[in-house]
Simulated scan of single mutants.
Amino acid sequence: MVIKDNSFGSRAFDIVNTVVLTIVGVSCFLPILHLFAVSLSNQSAVGGGLVSLWPVRPTAASYVKLLEDTAFFRAGSISIARTVIGTIVNLSLIVLLAYPLAQSPKKLKYRNVLMTYVIITMYFSAGLIPLYMVVRATGLLNSFWSLILPRAVPVWSVIILMNFFRSQPESLEEAALIDGATPLQILYRIAIPIARPAIATLTLFAMLSHWNNWFDGLIYLNSPRLYPLQTYLYGQIAGADTRTLLEQRASDIALFFSQETLRAAQIFVATIPIIIVYPLLQKHFVKGIVIGSVKG
């Protein structure tokens, strides 16, 4: 039974905490609302700086034009495939590495050496150029797998899941061994079901990482037809910013603002999948992080 603290300090903390989190939540929501308003506004209103949080002279022209943008949907399909396959690869390798490392040195010989090897990669990195050379030497350059395999084993996620496994009672494993279960059976029938909160949290981390990443596509892919959605959007936005309005011809200015509403529609649509998925996994988020971080 949880005893609630009704002291003045506790109540004051709750009030301040609620106010601060409300401000943070609103500050995160307002840019999305502004983006949506721009995507639905008339291009002249956008050009005149009249749009804030509500569409001005609403029109769905940007979304109609977006439906005709085959490159956008091709990039979106690549991002979906990358997120699904990449998340499966991440979780499979995280589980297969975290579970052995969660065992005591008595059960896993050289466990401490392996753990040191894993931890070192968190603090020391060869850098971007050696990583690019490895990707090129392994034949992954300009391929779909260059977006997945270089990020296949996120060490931070391995540590979170390893600590979650270590928090599980050893008596469960001992009882399973007495009943004749193999280590793989213990992993898939006992350890993984108990670790669902942590796995749900790491699933969210992996999905966000793959969906939001744009830099990998920029450096590993030579063909724009292979770009994931975020790299495609980066190209659209960066391309629009290469010249200022003062350097453009008058006939280009109207096109610029027409594209501005289209880009807003593209960015807003690109945020929808994560907005849908996040609430489904959010209930596991806090429990997965807390339990996975308390045991050393």
Rank of each mutant, 00 (worst) to 15 (best):
T87E: 07
T87L: 11
N90D: 11
N90Q: 06
N90R: 00
N90T: 06
L91W: 07
L91G: 10
L91P: 10
L93C: 09
I94T: 01
I94N: 04
V95M: 13
V95R: 00
L96Y: 05
L96K: 03
A98V: 02
A98N: 03
Y99V: 03
P100A: 13
P100I: 11
L101H: 05
A102E: 05
Q103G: 05
Q103W: 05
S104C: 06
S104H: 10
P105E: 12
K106Y: 10
L108H: 05
L108E: 06
L108R: 00
K109R: 13
K109A: 14
Y110F: 15
Y110I: 12
Y110K: 13
R111V: 02
R111Q: 14
N112H: 09
N112C: 09
N112P: 07
N112T: 12
N112G: 10
V113A: 15
V113I: 15
L114K: 03
M115R: 06
M115G: 14
M115H: 09
M115V: 10
T116Q: 04
T116C: 07
T116W: 00
T116E: 01
Y117R: 03
V118L: 14
I119K: 00
I119Y: 10
I119E: 03
I120H: 00
I120W: 02
I120V: 13
M122A: 03
M122H: 00
M122E: 09
M122S: 06
Y123T: 08
F124W: 11
F124L: 14
F124H: 04
S125E: 02
S125A: 14
A126V: 08
G127Y: 04
G127P: 03
G127L: 08
G127W: 02
L128Q: 07
I129C: 08
I129A: 10
